[in-house]
Measured scan of single mutants.
Amino acid sequence: GMDVRRLKVNELREELQRRGLDTRGLKAELAERLQAALSGPSSG
């Protein structure tokens, strides 16, 4: 899988935006949010 901790802030935001998620917050928050999205149930 993707290691969200290795991504830069702008990369985290890009991935979040692609999934329609909130791109605001600290890098740690963005990484946590993206990780949750990646490990969560895949819809679609």
Rank of each mutant, 00 (worst) to 15 (best):
G1E: 10
G1D: 09
G1A: 13
G1Y: 08
G1R: 12
M2W: 12
M2A: 06
M2L: 14
M2N: 06
D3K: 11
D3T: 08
D3E: 08
V4S: 04
V4C: 11
V4I: 11
V4A: 06
R5L: 09
R5N: 10
R6W: 07
R6F: 09
R6N: 10
R6P: 04
R6V: 07
L7F: 06
L7M: 15
L7H: 02
L7C: 07
K8N: 15
K8G: 13
K8F: 04
K8S: 15
V9I: 15
V9G: 03
V9H: 05
V9Q: 04
V9Y: 15
V9T: 08
V9F: 13
N10C: 15
N10P: 08
N10R: 15
N10F: 10
N10A: 13
E11N: 04
E11V: 06
E11G: 04
E11W: 07
E11K: 08
E11P: 01
L12I: 07
L12W: 01
L12A: 01
L12P: 00
L12Y: 01
L12H: 00
R13E: 03
R13D: 01
R13S: 02
E14V: 11
E14R: 15
E14M: 15
E14N: 10
E14Q: 14
E14T: 12
E14W: 15
E15K: 04
E15S: 04
E15M: 12
E15P: 00
L16G: 00
L16F: 02
L16Q: 00
L16W: 02
Q17F: 14
Q17G: 11
Q17T: 07
Q17E: 10
R18Y: 04
R18Q: 05
R18S: 05
R18W: 04
R19L: 14
R19D: 02
R19E: 02
R19A: 03
G20H: 06
G20D: 04
G20C: 08
L21K: 04
L21R: 03
L21N: 02
L21H: 04
L21V: 03
D22N: 12
D22I: 06
T23E: 05
T23P: 09
T23K: 05
T23M: 04
T23S: 07
T23L: 03
R24L: 07
R24H: 14
G25P: 00
G25H: 01
G25Y: 00
G25N: 02
G25I: 02
G25S: 01
L26P: 14
L26D: 15
L26R: 15
L26E: 15
L26Q: 14
L26H: 14
L26M: 10
L26I: 11
L26T: 15
K27Q: 09
K27D: 05
K27H: 11
K27L: 10
A28W: 15
A28V: 08
A28G: 08
A28L: 07
E29G: 03
E29R: 06
E29P: 02
L30S: 00
L30M: 06
L30E: 02
L30F: 00
L30D: 00
L30G: 01
A31H: 05
A31I: 15
A31Q: 15
A31C: 14
A31N: 03
A31V: 15
E32V: 09
E32S: 11
E32Q: 14
E32G: 07
R33N: 01
R33L: 03
R33T: 02
R33M: 02
R33K: 03
L34H: 00
L34R: 00
L34Q: 01
Q35S: 09
Q35A: 12
Q35E: 09
Q35H: 09
Q35C: 15
Q35R: 14
Q35F: 13
A36W: 08
A36P: 00
A36F: 08
A36D: 06
A36E: 08
A37F: 14
L38H: 02
L38F: 06
L38P: 01
L38W: 05
L38K: 03
S39A: 12
S39R: 14
S39W: 10
S39V: 10
S39Y: 12
G40D: 10
G40L: 12
G40M: 12
G40K: 13
G40V: 11
G40E: 09
P41Y: 13
P41G: 13
P41E: 14
S42P: 13
S42H: 11
S42M: 11
S43V: 12
S43F: 12
S43D: 12
S43T: 12
S43R: 09
S43G: 12
G44I: 12
G44T: 12
G44A: 12
G44W: 14
G44Y: 14
G44C: 14
